[in-house]
Amino acid sequence: MPVGAVIEFSNITKRFGDVTAVDDLSFTVEPGRVTGFLGPNGAGKTTTLRMLLGLVSPGSGSATFGGLRYHDLPHPLATVGAALEAASFHPGRTARNHLSIYATAAGLPQARVAEVLHLVGLSEHGGQRVGGYSLGMRQRLGLACTLLGDPGVLVLDEPINGLDPEGIKWIRGFLRDMAAEGRTVLVSSHLLSEVQQSVDDVIIIAKGRLVHRGPLSSLETQVAPQVVVDSPDRAALASALARAGVVFSQGRTGLLATAADPARIGHIAFTAGVEVSALHRQKKGLEDAFLTLVEGSDSL
């Protein structure tokens, strides 16, 4: 059984000209868990992963697997399997030949080619040229490539992009299984909702900087609760809330009171003699927490 290694980023930084793509990132990714690496498009996720894999050289800092840089791994494909967003296939080559080339280059047995094609459900299409593949099939071929060396660490950049619902369900189960076997699984995405059903931990970056890290549940506490309250006489309600010192904003369906208990808002309206037509706690999802964190980075 392959053993997962700890991925460690320490103070890694990358500039492209005047643009700082990745700014002093430090975090660790533990084995046995699925870690979501999240951030909006352009946040620096792909650059960070490419630095981890030795494809892009960091300006400063380092990224290691169990203390070793990718370049120093004795058997890179047997330690780390990586699928990056770019479609890295020659369209005129068959999937089987594509896999066979990299198995040869990494000194892996050719028997693995048929095994990994079977694992990702491409056995019947192995002899087909990749140029004729759908986006979902290419994603699966990318995954097959990561599994060639049966590695303890998986690094997947936007693996859910382009998958059909069945494929999404499949990959969620796949990620959970890989982590349950003790592997380290790092999955990037620009949408939390895409991965929230499969990740244990989240690392969120925006504009190249770390904005949040921790278990998925830690996101919920990030967002202040809000109460939606409305009245036929919204102006009277607003002045009553203002007099009581409640911070609020105008929402589409009423007033949004920040950090408040619905009972207290009801009481304020009652004592002010204002009729209340709606009063409920705003359900904020994880996605909102994620967006708040990411957008909040503007003020950094």
């Binding site: 296939f89 280059a105 990494a106 490539c145």
Partner: peptide, 18 residues
């Protein structure tokens, strides 16, 4: 040039970083 054009440098350098 095919390695650059079809972005196969990525899997190539992943399989052999030297």
């Amino acid at each position: 040039t095919g390695e650059f054009r079809h972005q196969t440098l990525t899997p190539t350098f992943l399989a052999n970083p030297r």
